[in-house]
Design a protein around this nucleic acid. Structure first.
Lengths: 230, 230
DNA sequence: ATCATCGAAAATGTCGATATTATTTTCCGA
DNA sequence: TCGGAAAATAATATCGACATTTTCGATGAT
């Protein structure tokens, strides 16, 4: 019964029905992963050839991405990928902490068996992909974090969280995607979050979650600083 | 130097440059004010005639509105105005309280002379329009509330607040726009917020602000309940 | 009489072309 | 030689037409 298509970016990416959806997903990925650099101009003609589709779907996809804060529209001068900055990163981090704190507490308050199981399952899949060096780790990582929140019964809140996740992960790709997770022991952090959440201890779960974000954040600021990004 | 066009919905609506912008603003207004009813199907052909423009601008405008949560896209079945519900209203109210609380505190923390003046000015304009029964009261009311937050130096946060404001005001129109403000003494609430903010008292300002929202919210839930909306 | 299936009508999504607008290059004058 | 205006170039924004999909209604069988 879910009529909302651009749901949370967690659909099976394989066979999208409309060309617009394909272009939307493809462009989103290109921008989030950094294949299209922050601030880069997005020329319709170039994208048309790159994605093998017409101009209309491209244009609609860009319009959708505009309101996701991944693309900016310059009134009669086309589109460009949203620029990055340390200020922007810190704002995203702050908003993520605030909103996910709310969402996670609600999720835990509404605790059900199905939700518990979905959290355990998504965690397991993420861990398995990580140890086997799976290519889909990033998707599963997002799936895990969203699974934690998904029980909160607030569609708008969830959408904000999903948007902010994508905005944030963009900075991780900028710093080199593999590196971060090898150098930090992030597994135990995930495990702590999951276990506290399942145990119904909202305070502990949120503390672990926000800690996780702030540590990742501090780490990233350091790396990005070296890379002279901002 | 502000390149972002769909800024916060506070631009002069008069002469938009592109047809897409015109359609976007027009459709937004039609939906927010309830001229287009919640859940109504948005047929391209109909809108094309109604707004005197081509199909492409309409489609792009609808795509933009989709990410603003004012329009929903059904994969191969066109668009429709987002439905309303009491749950949705309560979520919006909650998020507004959380986010504006953050934004207002930051605004006050960054207090400057220009900001103070813009708050006073926008308040005065709103009051004047109200007493003279001006047609633009709703726009000025939004301008006042946004002016309070505008100093917070967080573009994403501001955008969220602006979006939530529009989602919220939609419910007020649903209940009959004039009625609400006549029956409640909202003037003193506004005044309290403004004076506390200018005085630099963040705690008091936020308390007044959230109180203002919660009172309006409770009032609206009552009215909407009678109207058997949700 | 009810339900399923088929067909007609309408609406969506997509494409190619065109006019308008921005950008770059060139050329002329100071 | 440098600055600025004007033409040339490129890119965007918009339109109209077409193909595909959905929806609604009618027909016919059980």
């Amino acid at each position: 019964m879910d009529l909302h298509p651009s749901n949370l970016g967690l659909e099976p990416l394989g066979a999208e029905s409309s060309a617009t959806q394909r272009a939307y997903q493809a462009l989103r990925k290109l921008i989030v992963t950094g294949d299209i650099k922050p601030g880069a101009k997005l020329k319709i003609e170039g994208l048309r050839k790159r994605l093998q589709t017409g101009a209309s779907p491209i244009r609609e996809a860009l319009s959708l991405l505009t309101s996701d804060n991944l693309v900016e529209r310059m009134d009669q001068r086309g589109f460009r990928a949203s620029p990055t900055s340390q200020q922007n990163f810190e704002e995203i981090l702050m908003l993520r902490c605030e909103l996910e704190n709310i969402a996670l507490r609600q999720s835990i308050a509404n605790q059900t068996q199905e939700w518990e199981e979905s959290v355990v399952l998504s965690h397991h899949r993420m861990v398995r992909s990580h140890s086997s060096g799976g290519e889909d780790f990033e998707d599963l990582h997002k799936a895990f974090h969203m699974a934690l929140l998904l029980n909160c019964e607030g569609p708008v809140l969830l959408k904000f969280c999903s948007q902010l996740y994508d905005l944030n992960i963009r900075y991780r790709y900028l710093a080199g995607s593999a590196m971060n997770y090898k150098r930090r022991d992030v597994s135990s952090e995930h495990k702590n979050i999951m276990e506290s959440a399942i145990a119904g201890d909202a305070d502990a779960a949120c503390e672990h979650l926000l800690d996780h974000y702030r540590k990742t954040g501090a780490f990233l600021v350091g790396v990005l600083d070296e890379a002279k990004l901002a």
